[in-house]
């Protein structure tokens, strides 16, 4: 079992992560490239993530409403939607969208750079391609996914507010009080914390797949594809782990 291709792959990926930790925090630091990657991974994903979370917030509110009306508990809609978005939907939607958009593009970009010897070219140009390409992307994904998630949460809650006001009336103050009244640090902080791991997984898997792409253009497509699939799967696995850990620490 420990010699299967899956395990070999997993071990290689762990080695890749170890290399990231060893090389990532030693000079020379590629600040400019890190900023560029943050821009590409974070800022440029915002429209996509924003639209999805807006729709999810709105749809969730409108779907919940009839049921809550039956129970005479319409005042609970903000709390339910808020908790759902902040704890699960925001992080997961952001993670999946970023995995789809960024994971594939990292996989394809590094894959084609590998195949067309651009990575070798960087190395002979006095640049550590691992630092320049991999470390910056993993770091950027790790830092940007939480930010994207926070903004996605805010947008989703805004959509919820809008959804409530479509069929009823609530004020911003009441709405925030409704949500905040039920939230605790133990519910918010783990939800934010896990997104760092989501981002790390997306960056790591995308880079690993691209950096180790097989020769040939086919390898590039395979790298991009498997990066998305694996990253999406990993996000759900990490989410499961996050629930387990939060429960173990008594946050839930």
């Amino acid at each position: 079992m420990f010699n299967g291709p899956l395990f070999t792959e997993f071990r290689a990926m762990a080695g890749f992560a170890g290399r990231f930790l060893r090389e990532g925090f030693r000079p020379r630091y590629e600040w400019l490239e890190l900023a560029n990657q943050c821009y590409a991974i974070g800022y440029q994903s915002l429209p996509l993530v924003g639209i999805t979370s807006f729709i999810m917030g709105l749809v969730l509110t409108l779907r919940l409403r009839p049921t809550m009306v039956q129970f005479g508990a319409t005042s609970w809609i903000p709390v339910m939607v808020g908790l759902t978005i902040i704890q699960e939907l925001g992080p997961i939607i952001t993670g999946l969208m970023v995995a789809g958009k960024v994971g594939s593009s990292i996989g394809a970009e590094l894959g084609s750079m590998r195949v067309s010897e651009q990575i070798d070219a960087m190395e002979v140009s006095g640049t550590n391609p691992f630092k320049y390409l991999v470390v910056t992307r993993i770091l950027a994904a790790t830092l940007m996914v939480p930010i994207l998630t926070l903004l996605a949460d805010a947008i989703g809650l805004g959509a919820c507010y809008l959804g409530i006001n479509l069929q009823g009336v609530t004020s911003v103050a009441l709405f925030t009080n409704n949500i905040l009244g039920r939230l605790t640090f133990g519910e918010v902080l783990p939800a934010v914390g896990k997104t760092f791991f989501f981002g790390f997984a997306i960056g790591l898997i995308g880079c690993y797949k691209g950096y180790n792409a097989d020769n040939g253009t086919e390898g590039v497509g395979a790298a991009a594809n498997s990066a998305v699939v694996l990253a999406s799967l990993m996000i759900f696995l990490l989410d499961l782990v996050a629930v387990g850990v939060s429960t173990a620490f008594g946050f839930i």
Binding site: E109, M113, S116, E117, Q118, D120, A121, S125, G126, T127
Partner: peptide, 29 residues
């Protein structure tokens, strides 16, 4: 390596950069 040039078979030009940026890359590095 700064004293050794390497012309790759596939050219290895950086797709995301313009010609100017491609040339500046080894220079700055």
């Amino acid at each position: 390596r700064a004293k050794v040039g390497f012309l790759f078979q596939s050219n290895a030009l950086y797709d995301s950069m313009t010609v100017r940026e491609n040339l500046l890359f080894p220079l700055r590095r």
